[in-house]
């Protein structure tokens, strides 16, 4: 997974030994710091509800940095989606010797058409995010496409910064 926003660029690879958790390694280029670092990350599924037409998930996420500032983070991620609608949220706390900050986001979206398995799937979304470094909510449109093993999500926030999320299922 490749991720980029106004705070950082990162490349993340994870492996799921069980559906309950995954372990991963993330290479992070923090835009507001000079030092790149590596996160060892862990994601744990706290709750999942599957129904015929929906899925709801709640995850606990944490990471420990190899950088020199004893940096770590933890947070919650959640989503509920049907084939037509999506609602997601996240809240993370980042701690280090250099600084502490939190990030939150909420994202809603809908699929303008329902594709079959293997088709190109498209989503129109709105994302709103905030860090307490600026204490402002930044709200912007996001589009998401996926087909086969590839997923691409991107938007441009209010500060003209690219918010990019690219995933490949191996």
């Amino acid at each position: 997974m490749i991720f980029s926003d106004d705070m950082m660029d990162s490349a993340y690879y994870h492996y799921s030994p069980s559906y309950k958790y995954s372990l991963g390694i993330e290479l992070v280029d923090e835009k507001k710091q000079t030092e790149d670092h590596v996160y060892f990350r862990h994601t744990y599924l706290l709750d999942r509800k599957n129904t015929q037409h929906s899925q709801r998930n709640l995850y606990f996420q944490s990471g420990l940095s190899t950088g020199g500032n004893d940096e770590y983070f933890y947070g919650l991620l959640g989503d509920w989606e049907t084939r037509r609608y999506f609602i997601g949220f996240g809240a993370q706390e980042f701690k280090s010797n250099a600084r502490n900050y939190s990030k939150q986001f909420i994202q809603i979206g809908f699929a303008p058409y329902l594709g079959a398995y293997g088709d190109l799937h498209s989503w129109l979304m709105v994302k709103s995010k905030r860090t307490d470094l600026t204490d402002e909510w930044n709200t912007y449109p996001v589009v998401k496409f996926f087909k086969g093993d590839y997923l691409l999500e991107f938007g441009v926030d209010e500060n003209d910064k690219l918010d990019l999320h690219f995933m490949i299922r191996i």
């Binding site: 509800k49 599957n50 989606e81 594709g115 799937h121 087909k147 093993d149």
Partner: peptide
């Protein structure tokens, strides 16, 4: 199957 709401997520079943 329940919870199969997303093509990208269901792709893992095939794999």
């Amino acid at each position: 199957v329940t919870g199969m709401v997303c093509d990208f997520c269901a792709r893992g079943i095939e794999k």
